[in-house]
Nucleic acid binder design. Structure first.
Lengths: 124, 124
DNA sequence: CCGTATCCCGGTGGATACTG
DNA sequence: CAGTATCCACCGGGATACGG
């Protein structure tokens, strides 16, 4: 099944130009824009990181959420998990091609937010 | 109130940057990437819409969430609310300059998701 | 037509403790 | 070091009813 999503529509037609509720885009959107999803994607965008590095870099994330978000992304083929059965264990996470495509589209957004967050929050 | 933070640290390079927990970017990110925020921004990106049009276009959103998300965005200066004291009332919502800047950066992401959502969800 | 006002549920996400 | 396992608080979000 192929769901077409016409973003460049002008007016809500009868059946065109809607944002259907039962659409895979909703699922994917939710995962990517989940509370920690964006931050993980961005953190990995500049290169692979180990579990501990991610945990330290993304301040405030709990182990549970780091684990579950990474598992979801791995299942989606967005991040790649490389575990080494050494002692102590070492696990590296990196973005897949698909992950990089997403992250690349997230960067402009985050750059803008970084530049304007103060105005938005402060002006209120 | 003015919250200061080092922007160069919010999007680190390979070395040593963090994503601070007490950062305005977190607040703004949360609002924009809220469940309905992205869809509202996208819906308004191609032109102003009335309340009812938004409600119909964004399938599944409750009145409560449509109202509260719009109120938040209005307070943030992301959307503009034009009410006419007629009977029946008519209220138009449109993106501000700031809103368009955000939406413009959201479009590439949604385009990608629209093109790949099936693979991601289906492949699992 | 365009909302606001309540009530309430479910699941996200946090804290903590434990393991290979 | 890199996770799992529980427990539970909180609040995003839905349903419904009502008001300007």
């Amino acid at each position: 099944m192929s769901v077409s999503f016409d973003i460049s529509r002008t007016r809500p037609g009868l059946s065109g130009g809607k944002y259907p509720a039962d659409c895979p885009t909703r699922t994917v959107l939710t995962q990517i824009t989940s509370r920690w999803g964006v931050l993980i994607l961005l953190a990995l965008e500049s290169g692979p990181l180990r579990w501990g590095e991610l945990h330290r870099e993304i301040e405030g994330i709990s182990e549970k959420m780091l684990a579950s978000t990474l598992r979801t992304f791995a299942a989606d083929g967005i991040v790649d998990r490389q575990a080494q059965a050494t002692i102590p264990p070492r696990v590296d996470y990196s973005l897949t091609e698909r992950g990089h495509e997403i992250a690349a589209r997230l960067v402009p957004l985050m750059d803008w937010i970084a530049d304007n967050a103060d105005d938005i929050v402060g002006g209120r």
